[in-house]
């Protein structure tokens, strides 16, 4: 008996049972059977044909009109068959695309991976989570001589185009002699590169800073990036870390303002992307004060634990669905 005969027989059995005693159980069995049919890739019009065949068998005296009506139904089903087969094909295509994105995402991970460097005076914590598979947020640490530089950037535009832009920035940054660089000059350089190379609707926000352990000074500059926070241990107060500047890529001639801050023992520099401040809870957008409150809650833990805990709480508040890439970095001066 061929597979088709087996199916026909089974369908006939189920249908006969149902016609004799219209029970819910049989209907349920009918549904489960359709699952089997789908597994065998039986199309809608095949099923109608099966039905016709079985009905012929069960009711050889079926009226002419009844029989003809089934032929009509068969024709109508062909359209559904079209849609069904296209759906199958598109699903296969989608699976293929998904695995291609996986490959691209892991490639990006490898290329853009920035190790969090060990740095004597500082306890560094980093969390960076993409909303989609590829991250539009970018952070980079570079140890150069005695100093540590840190950059956080956000490309406007999500998904694959954004991430490709990010790769471009990383390579631009890696090839600039950073020891000589002051953050505001680095931004000026980068701005020119970006302006010439991105689509007119794209722009990049960025914050760049350099910590010099001898002077305990943190030099920084910003290009339209969401302000971070600065925690002043002596006052036990959090302040906004303002670094005003125009986003990268708008105008070739933009200049950036250099800022600096003295970092004392116990102080923290907190950098973030707007995925943090764009968290939406049931009550609406999260306020910056709430983010500060969260940091304060975990403040005494090591930096990595602080950022992870803050992320987990915000993630939970949003129902575990990120609206935007989320990046949070904390530098705490230990000695």
């Amino acid at each position: 008996m061929t597979a088709k005969d087996a199916l026909t027989e089974r369908y006939q059995d189920l249908l006969s049972v149902y016609l004799k005693a219209k029970t819910e159980t049989t209907l349920y069995k009918g549904q489960q059977f359709s699952r089997k049919l789908l597994e065998q890739q039986i199309s809608p019009e095949d099923l109608v044909s099966l039905h016709i065949q079985v009905m012929d068998e069960l009711f050889p005296d079926m009226s002419e009109e009844m029989r003809d009506s089934f032929d009509f139904l068969l024709e109508a089903m062909i359209g559904y068959g079209f849609a069904y087969r296209e759906h199958q094909s598109l699903r296969d295509k989608q699976q293929q695309l998904e695995s291609e994105i996986e490959v691209a995402a892991s490639m990006q991970q490898t290329l853009l991976l920035s190790d969090v460097p060990e740095f004597d005076q500082l306890d560094i914590g980093v969390v960076s989570v993409p909303a989609k598979k590829m991250n539009g947020d970018y952070y980079n640490f570079v140890k150069s001589g005695n100093s540590l530089s840190v950059a956080v950037a956000d490309i406007i535009g999500k998904g694959i185009p954004a991430a490709l832009c990010m790769s471009m920035i990383k390579y631009a940054m890696d090839s600039l002699p950073e020891e000589q660089m002051k953050p505001h000059l680095l931004l000026e350089n980068l701005n020119r590169v970006v302006e010439q190379n991105v689509h007119s609707n794209m722009f990049i926000t960025m914050f760049h800073g350099v910590y010099e352990p001898e002077s305990h000074k943190f030099y920084y500059a910003g290009a339209g990036h969401e302000p971070g926070f600065f925690y002043h241990a002596k006052e036990d107060e959090f302040h906004d870390l303002i670094a005003k500047g125009l986003v990268l890529g708008v105008s070739r001639t933009t200049t950036y303002h250099p800022y600096e801050k003295m970092i004392e023992v116990g102080d923290m520099v907190i950098l973030l992307s707007d995925g943090v401040t764009e968290c939406r809870t049931s009550k609406g957008f999260i306020e910056r004060e709430e983010v500060v409150a969260l940091i304060r809650k975990y403040m005494d833990l090591p930096s990595q634990k602080i950022v992870e805990n803050v992320f987990q709480e915000l993630d939970r508040l949003q129902g575990f669905e990120l609206r935007d890439d989320f990046t949070l970095i904390i530098l705490k001066r230990l000695v």
Binding site: D154, S200, N201, F203, V247, G249, V250, D274
Partner: peptide, 15 residues
């Protein structure tokens, strides 16, 4: 307005 929206204004400004 999100950053994509802002991007449209950036493009309009440049234009």
């Amino acid at each position: 307005m999100d950053s994509t929206g802002l991007g449209i204004f950036v493009g309009a400004l440049k234009s």
